[in-house]
Design a protein around this nucleic acid. Structure first.
Length: 341
DNA sequence: AAAGCGGGGCA
DNA sequence: TGCCCAGCTTT
C-alpha cells in the first residue's frame, strides 16, 4: 500500500499543473476553489476562481455581497445551489465564527455545501489533517489499481473505497498525497484513454495486468433521461423593456431570471403551440431554437399580454446584471442586436 | 437509498 | 449528436 502513495507523490512532483489554489494555505481560498471545482473541470473553474478571489478577497467581503451578486458571478458554472450555499456559508463564517473556518473535519462538515469530500480536502490542504479525499479520481484509481469491480455508486462500494483511501493515505503529508492522487487521476489515470504505456504504476496495477483498465470503475444502473420542452416569450413593454420572471424553487435554474416561459409536455405540443403564434398573430417576428442538454427551447417574439401577470421589466443593461440561466445568456449573446431597445 | 441539480468535452 | 463526468442536498 505504501508503494502506491510514494509513486503518486513522485509522479506529482514532476507532472503537476501550476494552479493558484495550490500556493495558499488560506482556508477561504481553498474552500472557494473546492466548491467551484465540485463537478467542474479545472479549465472551466479557474476563471471563476480568479473572479471570486478578485471580487471577494476575504470571506467577510463575500458575506457582505447580496445573493444576486454572488449568483451573477456564478452564472454559467451550473449547479447554482453551490453558489447559494457558498454565500450562506460565508455569512455563517463571518458572523458566527468570527471569520475563521473550523479547523476540523467534523466542524467543516457541518457547513452548507461541504460534504465528505470537501471537508477532507479543506482539512488536509489548509490544516494538514490526515483525512483522505475520495472523489471521482480516487474511485477510478483505486478500482483500477486494486482491480475492484464493486460499483462506485453503491453503498458497499463507497464504503470499501473510502476504507482503502484511508489506508493508502500518507499521514505524514496528507495535503501532498491528496493533491497527488487527484492530479494523477485527472492527467494520467483518466476516465477515457488513460496513459498506461507511460504509467509509473503499470507493473503493480491489477487492472493493467488483467487487461481491464477500460472496464473499471464499475457504475450501477442508468439514470433515466427526462426531456423537457420550453418556449420563451420575448416581450417588451411600451418603453421597450424586456419582461423577465424569476424561476421558482425546486426545479432547474432555481431563482435565476428568464423570459416568461411555458413548458409543454411533448415536442408535438411544443410545435402546435408555436404554430398558434403564426396563425393567430400574423407571423412571429422572431423564432429561434436552442437545445440545452435535454431541454429543447424556442424563443418567440410574442405580443405582450396586458396586465395578465406581473412580470418585471428590465432594460438590456439591467438584464446583464442579473443571474441568468446559460440558455438565456447564450440567446442574448447571439441576438443582442436583433432585440428592441 | 434514490433522485435532482448544469455545464463542457469528446467520440 | 449523444454520451460522459460526479459531490452535495433533498426527499
Amino acid at each position: 500500500m505504501q508503494v502506491l502513495g510514494q509513486e503518486l507523490v513522485k509522479w506529482y512532483e514532476n507532472h503537476h499543473r501550476n494552479l493558484p489554489w495550490r500556493h495558499t494555505k488560506d482556508p477561504y481560498q481553498i474552500w472557494l476553489s473546492e466548491v467551484i471545482l465540485q463537478q467542474t473541470r479545472v479549465d472551466q473553474g479557474l476563471p471563476y476562481f480568479l473572479k471570486f478571489v478578485h471580487t471577494f478577497p476575504t470571506v467577510e467581503l463575500l458575506a457582505k455581497a447580496t445573493e444576486q451578486e454572488v449568483l451573477s458571478l456564478w452564472q454559467g458554472l451550473g449547479y447554482y445551489s453551490r453558489g447559494r450555499n457558498l454565500h450562506k456559508t460565508a455569512q455563517i463564517i463571518a458572523h458566527e465564527y468570527n471569520g475563521a473556518f473550523p479547523n476540523s473535519y467534523e466542524g467543516l462538515l457541518k457547513l452548507k455545501g461541504i460534504g465528505p469530500y470537501t471537508a477532507a480536502a479543506i482539512s488536509s490542504f489548509a490544516f494538514d489533517l490526515p483525512h483522505a479525499v475520495v472523489d471521482g479520481n480516487v474511485f477510478r484509481i483505486l478500482s483500477r489499481y486494486f482491480g475492484i469491480d464493486l460499483a462506485i455508486n453503491s453503498s458497499a462500494g463507497k464504503k470499501t473505497f473510502e476504507k482503502i483511501a484511508g489506508e493508502v493515505l500518507n499521514i505524514k503529508q496528507p495535503a501532498l498525497h491528496n493533491q497527488a492522487i487527484m492530479e494523477f487521476g485527472a492527467l494520467q489515470c483518466k476516465p477515457v484513454a488513460p496513459k498506461c504505456s507511460e504509467c509509473p504504476l503499470q507493473l503493480s496495477c491489477a487492472a493493467f495486468a488483467e487487461n481491464k483498465v477500460h472496464l473499471l470503475p464499475v457504475k450501477e444502473k442508468k439514470i433515466k433521461i427526462r426531456h423537457r420542452f420550453f418556449v420563451y416569450h420575448v416581450q417588451t413593454d411600451q418603453e421597450n423593456r424586456l419582461a423577465l420572471e424569476r424561476r421558482v424553487a425546486g426545479d432547474i435554474w432555481e431563482g435565476l431570471f428568464q423570459f416568461p416561459m411555458i413548458e409543454l409536455k411533448s415536442s408535438e405540443e411544443q410545435i402546435t403551440y408555436l404554430q398558434s403564434f403564426a396563425t393567430s398573430w400574423q407571423s412571429p417576428k422572431f423564432k429561434h431554437v436552442l437545445t440545452h442538454q435535454k431541454i429543447e427551447a424556442y424563443f418567440v417574439l410574442a405580443p405582450l399580454r396586458e396586465k395578465k401577470e406581473e412580470k418585471i421589466h428590465y432594460s438590456l443593461q439591467e438584464i446583464s446584471e442579473l443571474p441568468l440561466p446559460r440558455l438565456i445568456d447564450k440567446f442574448l449573446e447571439q441576438h443582442r442586436k436583433d432585440l428592441p431597445i
